[in-house]
């Protein structure tokens, strides 16, 4: 799998996939829908799938001495590496906001969703949606990127709206905790977000392997 990941990163990936990872730092922007940062990260990954099609990467990979399902696994692994790197940056940004900048007035008076562990959990859900809708959709044909990306985009913005609004529901104010307030709840929410990500990704991977197996290249 190391060789396949290396091929993904060296030959198939668009440089934009790497350049868009720092969009995780949008978690530092006050009064801004921080989850758009997660969307931009996926937009960067989308460029690699465009590259995949333009460089004949799928057929090239199918000619290598690897199983067909390993091609799919390689793509998912690459996507998860980029998403994981972005999640680390988001986590760093959240920790900075929780600690060094805990007393920064601009964050205390933040009018939109706070960048906390719940926000990272939501970012994981967005990444899970991307993997399930876009990456899974791509492997239905192994060349169409437009339709799956449009479906993903149409789905992700309502999801961001829901994540931004949920704190206004009575009793759920805790999701917008600032600093280290309600830290246990925040950590539990993060674990839930990661669990949703894993379920969406692994389920999608399973179906993608099956769909890709049926395709004539």
């Amino acid at each position: 799998m190391n060789n396949i990941l290396r091929k993904e990163m060296k030959l198939s990936a668009s440089v934009l996939s790497y350049l868009f990872i720092p969009f995780g730092l949008m978690f530092l922007i006050p009064n801004y829908p921080v989850l758009c940062g997660a969307f931009f990260v996926t937009l960067g990954i989308f460029q690699s799938f465009q590259n995949t099609r333009e460089t004949n990467d799928i057929v090239f990979s199918a000619l290598l001495p690897i199983a067909k399902k390993d091609i799919v696994k390689g793509k998912y692994l690459f996507v998860c590496v980029i998403e994981g790197a972005a999640a680390l940056i988001m986590t760093a940004a959240v920790i900075i906001r929780m600690t060094i900048l805990e007393k920064a007035e601009i964050y205390i008076n933040n009018t939109l969703m706070n960048a906390n562990f719940f926000a990272i959990a939501c970012a994981f859900v967005i990444f899970g949606l991307f993997n399930a809708i876009f990456v899974g959709g791509f492997f239905r044909t192994a060349y169409k990127t437009g339709v799956p990306f449009v479906i993903y985009t149409v789905s992700v913005f309502p999801a961001i709206f829901v994540a931004e609004s949920i704190r206004h529901i009575p009793g759920l104010e805790g999701v917008n905790a600032f600093g280290t307030d309600k830290i246990i709840l925040q950590i539990l929410l993060l674990i839930c977000g990661i669990a949703v990500f894993l379920i969406l990704t692994l389920t999608s991977l399973k179906f993608a392997c099956k769909n890709f197996e049926k395709i004539d290249l």
């Binding site: 060789n3 060296k10 460089t55 057929v59 000619l63 001495p65 690897i66």
Partner: peptide
């Protein structure tokens, strides 16, 4: 499939792989 592909070679005159990557990078990966 895997064992057979190690022992076989394929080349096409009609398809170009990774048009904007350096040959040494393609070979190093392959």
């Amino acid at each position: 499939e895997k064992e057979i592909k190690i022992r076989t070679g394929y080349s096409s005159g009609t398809v170009s792989w990774y048009p904007r990557k350096k040959i040494k990078d393609i070979a190093d990966t392959v």
